[in-house]
């Protein structure tokens, strides 16, 4: 951003910043120690890359490949382009490795709950049972030979949501590294973060998870070095947005959203795995979590739960893993 650049003096560390809207949230990029002109060129390249990723993975782009798949994969097997096929295969792999806790087919349930919760009510049991029959990765058939995909029933659909952000961050980080960038902070709406190297004045990038009811209170600090951090969770209905649940997480085992206000933040060397695990851990019972994590290169995870005492919500770390 011009203001940041022009305000620095020679004694200061040069910082370049750019924010833009992508993947239905705000993307921010902070580069350190890069010549302004090069940084500007990198920002343009980054934005171009994000648009391409968004086109490939967004379910909201009616002309995009995911919409195409969601429309056509019911009646016939669809062959997505190579890259999307690989992403969907990765998602299936993660679904297996998380024992079904990470699932990109929960849209019908998400949609049903959102619709009813906006009216302040729960959906009827019959509707939940019906939506559950339209969700579940076991109902997506992969043909390895033809590299094609087919849904078992009409009404099913795929939503790459958070996974897409993790995937985009990883590919962006790769591009920046290849261009010789050593220190960078990349963020999607602060819920998905990837850093390169360390903070210019310390051994890592310190990222503090603050209370969602009291932004001044840091509940836990992660120290990231060449790593990613993803947070998933439920948040209170927001007055500004009207009656709308933000960050609703469906538990695929029950077909119901997880209860209470809670967040799971996961740091990992892989942006995609941080994304997968922040959701998967949240819906996995605590006694099964450590076993689930054994196959992942995770470094640490923190679950924060907000308990209400006399109307005030106070954060508490209820579960923690790793350093």
């Amino acid at each position: 951003m011009e203001e940041v650049l022009s305000s620095r003096s020679s004694s200061r560390t040069s910082v370049f910043h750019r924010s833009c809207f992508a993947m239905h949230t705000r993307f921010s990029m902070v580069l350190v120690g890069i010549d302004p002109e090069r940084a500007e060129a990198l920002a343009i390249e980054a934005e171009y890359e994000l648009r391409a990723q968004e086109r490939m993975m967004s379910r909201f782009d009616v002309e995009g490949p995911v919409s195409d798949l969601n429309r056509r994969a019911v009646n016939s097997a669809v062959q997505p382009a190579q890259e999307l096929w690989q992403i969907l295969s990765m998602c299936r792999d993660y679904w297996n490795r998380t024992r079904g806790a990470f699932d990109i087919t929960l849209w019908p349930l998400n949609h049903l709950w959102r619709e009813h919760l906006e009216r302040g009510e729960e959906p009827p049991e019959e509707a939940i049972a019906q939506a559950r029959r339209l969700a579940g990765f076991e109902r997506v058939h992969f043909d390895e030979t033809a590299q094609s995909i087919r849904f078992q029933s009409e009404g099913m659909s795929i939503d790459l949501g958070g996974f897409g952000k993790g995937f985009a961050l990883e590919s962006l980080a790769g591009i920046l590294r290849a261009q010789g960038v050593e220190q960078a902070f990349l963020s999607f709406g602060e819920s998905s973060i990837t850093v390169l190297g360390s903070h210019p004045h310390g051994p890592a990038w310190p990222v503090g998870i603050t209370s969602m009811f009291n932004p001044g209170q840091t509940v836990h600090t992660f120290y990231l070095h060449d790593a990613s951090l993803s947070s998933s969770g439920t948040a209170p209905f927001n007055r500004m947005a009207g009656p709308r649940a933000v960050g609703q997480i469906i538990n695929p085992r029950t077909g119901r959203p997880i209860e209470g206000y809670r967040t799971m933040s996961v740091a990992s060397p892989s942006g995609v795995e941080a994304e997968v695990l922040s959701t998967a851990l949240l819906v996995t019972p605590r006694h099964e979590r450590v076993e689930l994590l054994s196959g992942f290169s995770i470094t640490s995870a923190v679950e924060i739960v907000y308990h209400s005492t006399s109307g005030e919500f106070a954060p508490e770390i209820e579960w923690q893993y790793g350093s």
Partner: peptide
Amino acid sequence: DTVPIGGPSWVPDL
């Protein structure tokens, strides 16, 4: 300094 973040994304801002 620690970068303060608020957990899950806030859609309304966007």
